[in-house]
């Protein structure tokens, strides 16, 4: 039975695992140039032979405008996906910090209990083995060791 913070962390990770593949699939949209190509070539066909020189930058501008329009729309989509990915990163970071702190604390507990086991075994083999009062944790906090 998990306590509420652990349950919340687990659910957050599950949501991240669920949403991440969907977001990764939205990173590479394909531009469809068929329509603009067809339209530009039709326009080029309609150009008179005498105006061919003058029509070239106009047709190039037509294509560039289409590309710029499509990229502007994609920029909005890109920023939305980027924001969702940033949010996932924040969630994972906070869950990771939560687990890290509990992991370090449990490491301390485990170290103390390892000492307790070895000391109990020592006392069993030699009841005269000395033992020392354990140092309180609040006196040990902030030290390197």
């Amino acid at each position: 039975m998990k306590s509420l913070p652990f349950l919340r962390a687990s659910l957050a990770l599950r949501q991240v695992r669920k949403h991440l593949p969907k977001l990764r699939g939205q990173s590479s949209p394909e531009i469809d140039m068929a329509d603009v190509r067809t339209r530009a070539l039709e326009l080029a066909d309609d150009v008179d032979d005498r105006n061919a020189v003058a029509a070239q930058p106009v047709l190039f501008g037509y294509v560039d405008a289409h590309i710029a329009d499509w990229l502007a729309n994609m920029k909005t989509h890109h920023d939305t996906v980027q924001a969702e990915l940033d949010l996932l990163s924040v969630r994972v970071t906070e869950v990771r910090a939560f687990y890290q702190i509990h992991h370090d604390d449990q490491q301390n507990v485990l170290d103390d209990l390892e000492a307790a086991v070895s000391h109990a075994l020592e006392r069993l083999s030699d009841p005269d083995a000395p033992f020392y009062d354990p140092e309180p944790r609040n006196k040990r906090r902030g030290r390197d060791s």
Partner: peptide
């Protein structure tokens, strides 16, 4: 305590890997 530590270690490793995956996805994006 060792069983609890192992569970926490497993969660920590999983979240660390997931954080790396999310960072990689952001870079790829």
């Amino acid at each position: 305590a060792a069983a609890k530590h192992s569970r926490l270690d497993s969660n920590l490793q999983g979240s660390t890997k997931l954080a790396a995956t999310v960072d990689k996805a952001r870079l790829e994006h």
